[in-house]
């Protein structure tokens, strides 16, 4: 697949001297959902704002659909829809008017059928004549998405689409994102909810302190960085771990009936075979074994910690 957004060595320092982006390289493929994950202040919004033209580019280059985001800004921006993090809408304007306005800004001729289609897709058609101030928070966010989609962009940026949104609405948002992907829209979302990235993204980029620490296929990332845990249930309680098992670094649960072993799937050897042999040699009888993968959250925490170290 071809890269639809290509970012090369992007740096951005704000007037106050704060270095928000420190040489970011990122290629986004057409049709994928990529989640940029990072704590508050990591540079996620700066990255999105710079691509979309809200913040000036420091140094480096951004191309969108092959167009330079600065030199050929018209062609580049035509391809992009942006849903900002803050819910900012003119309170007295009707839903349908604000959506039409957005389409106009992108130089598209009026197309009532398309406006209707977008509003229906986001379950806003019944609210089309409501003023923004009469809508609930979730509905307002849908209006922002409608505004971002109404000029038929090929790329949609969602900046923290589910920040402060209740669980049900978050699921709704995820459904909308999947639907859009099915229609061929490339989606870049920022989030600090790991479960969100885990639930909907194809790829995950981890960003911290203005640096993109890694970008991986979600599955690869989990596999590559995944600590796995092996839980060994014993037939009978034991008071202490037999000395012969000490090299394995096991932990004994407080009930004395299960052993806990952590291993790295990245390692050439997991040590499981040796461990099981040693357990048998120590005369312990097993009742059950279970393995558990670490969540993206644990991966993330360990990455950010490594970065801080």
């Amino acid at each position: 697949m071809a890269a639809i957004v290509d970012i090369r060595d992007l740096r951005k320092t704000y007037d106050g001297g704060f270095e928000a982006l420190k040489g970011v390289n990122l290629s986004i493929e057409e049709g994928e959902i990529i989640a940029l994950l990072g704590p508050n202040g990591a540079g996620k919004t700066t990255l999105i704002s710079t691509i979309c033209g809200i913040t000036n580019v420091g140094t480096g280059s951004i191309t969108v659909g092959g167009f330079d985001a600065v030199r050929d800004y018209r062609q580049a921006r035509n391809l992009i829809g942006l849903v900002p993090q803050e819910i900012n809408l003119e309170p007295f304007t009707k839903v349908i008017d604000t959506v039409r306005f957005s389409r106009g800004l992108f130089g598209k001729p009026r197309d009532e059928a398309y406006v209707e289609k977008v509003l229906r897709q986001l379950s806003l058609w019944d609210k089309r004549n409501a003023r923004a101030m009469e809508l609930s928070g979730g509905m307002k966010r849908r209006v922002l998405i409608a505004k971002a989609l109404v000029h038929e962009p090929r790329i949609l940026f969602l900046d923290e689409p589910t920040a402060g949104v209740d669980v049900e609405l978050r699921k709704d948002m995820w459904d909308i994102v999947s639907e859009l992907q099915a229609q061929g829209v490339t989606i870049i979302l920022t989030t600090h909810y790991i479960e969100e990235a885990e639930a909907i993204a194809d790829r995950v980029g981890v960003i911290n302190k203005g640096e993109l620490l890694l970008v991986e296929d979600k599955a690869t990332l989990m596999a590559r960085l995944g600590q796995k845990h092996l839980q060994i249930e014993l037939q009978e309680r034991i008071e202490a771990i037999p000395e012969a098992l000490n090299p394995h670094g096991l932990e004994l649960a407080t009930d004395g009936q299960s052993l806990h072993y952590s291993y790295d799937t990245r390692g050439e050897r997991t040590g499981i075979t040796q461990l099981l042999n040693d357990i048998a040699a120590a005369g312990l009888v097993l009742r059950d074994i279970r393995t558990q993968e670490s969540s993206l959250e644990e991966i993330f925490v360990s990455l950010v910690r490594e970065d801080a170290a």
Binding site: C52, Y73, Q75, L82, P84, N88, L105, F106, G107
Partner: peptide, 17 residues
């Protein structure tokens, strides 16, 4: 000033204008 106050200038800045 009104769009600036409301924070809706993002739309003007991100449009091909």
């Amino acid at each position: 000033y009104f769009p600036k106050f409301l924070g809706t200038t993002y739309e003007l800045l991100s449009a091909p204008l």
